[in-house]
C-alpha cells in the first residue's frame, strides 16, 4: 500500500484534518528519522545552556530555562541506546508537555512536517530492538527510508522507570 500521501508542508499546517491524515514533526537522531504527532510538539528551539542533574537517569541530560520555566531535557540518543555525540554545544530540542510537566527532547536536527494517512501506519518491525520497540508504536514508509513514530508517553515513561 505505498500511496503518495506522504508530502511535506510548512509548519503552518498543524492539525490532522478531517481526511484522517496525521501530521508529524520529523527529527533526526543518529541518521534515523523519527516522527512525533505535531499536536504533541509545543515548539522547536536550540539549546545553549543545560544544568546537569547528578544521580539522574542517564537519558536526563539536565534542566533548561525556557523563558522562565524549567524544562527537563531528555537525550533521545541516550534513550535509544546510541552513542552520545561528543562536544556539541548547541543542540536542537523539541518542546513537549506530558502530565503537566515540560520536557525537551534533544535531537540532532529537526526537519519538516510530514503528513500520512492513519491507514498507512505499519507495526514496528519485530527485530528492531527492545528499546526502540518500547518507545514506538509504528512506522511509516518514506520514499527513502522509514519514519519511526515515537510514542511520547512510553518514551517518557522509560525515564520514570529508570529513576
Amino acid at each position: 500500500m505505498i500511496t503518495q500521501s506522504q508530502e511535506t508542508r510548512s509548519l503552518a499546517a498543524t492539525k490532522a484534518d478531517g481526511s484522517g491524515e496525521i501530521a508529524y514533526v520529523a527529527m533526526k537522531v543518529g541518521g534515523q528519522i523519527f516522527g512525533l504527532p505535531i499536536n504533541d510538539v509545543h515548539e522547536v528551539f536550540s539549546v545553549t545552556r543545560i544544568t546537569p542533574v547528578p544521580l539522574a537517569p542517564p537519558m536526563v541530560t539536565g534542566l533548561i530555562n525556557l523563558r522562565g520555566r524549567v524544562v527537563t531535557a531528555i537525550c533521545l540518543r541516550t534513550l535509544l541506546g546510541l552513542d552520545e555525540t561528543p562536544g556539541r554545544q548547541d543542540r536542537m530540542a523539541v518542546g513537549l508537555e506530558s502530565g503537566g510537566e515540560l520536557f525537551a527532547l534533544l535531537v540532532d536536527s529537526v526537519g519538516d512536517v510530514m503528513r500520512f494517512h492513519a491507514s498507512t501506519l505499519e507495526p514496528c518491525p519485530v527485530h528492531i530492538g527492545g528499546v526502540w520497540r518500547s518507545v514506538s508504536h509504528g512506522v511509516h514508509r518514506l520514499e527513502t527510508g522509514i519514519l519511526v513514530i515515537l510514542d511520547l508517553k512510553r518514551a517518557l515513561g522509560t525515564m520514570q522507570r529508570a529513576a
Partner: peptide, 27 residues
C-alpha cells in the same frame, strides 16, 4: 522554588530547582 520534574523526585538530594538571576537553572 520550583518543583522538580516527577521523574527526578526520587533523587533524595534535591528538593527542587530554581532559575537564578543570570538565567541558569540551579538545583
Amino acid at each position: 522554588v520550583k518543583p522538580l520534574n516527577s521523574g527526578l523526585k526520587s533523587i533524595p538530594l534535591f528538593s527542587g530547582n530554581t532559575i537564578l538571576g543570570d538565567g541558569a537553572v540551579v538545583l
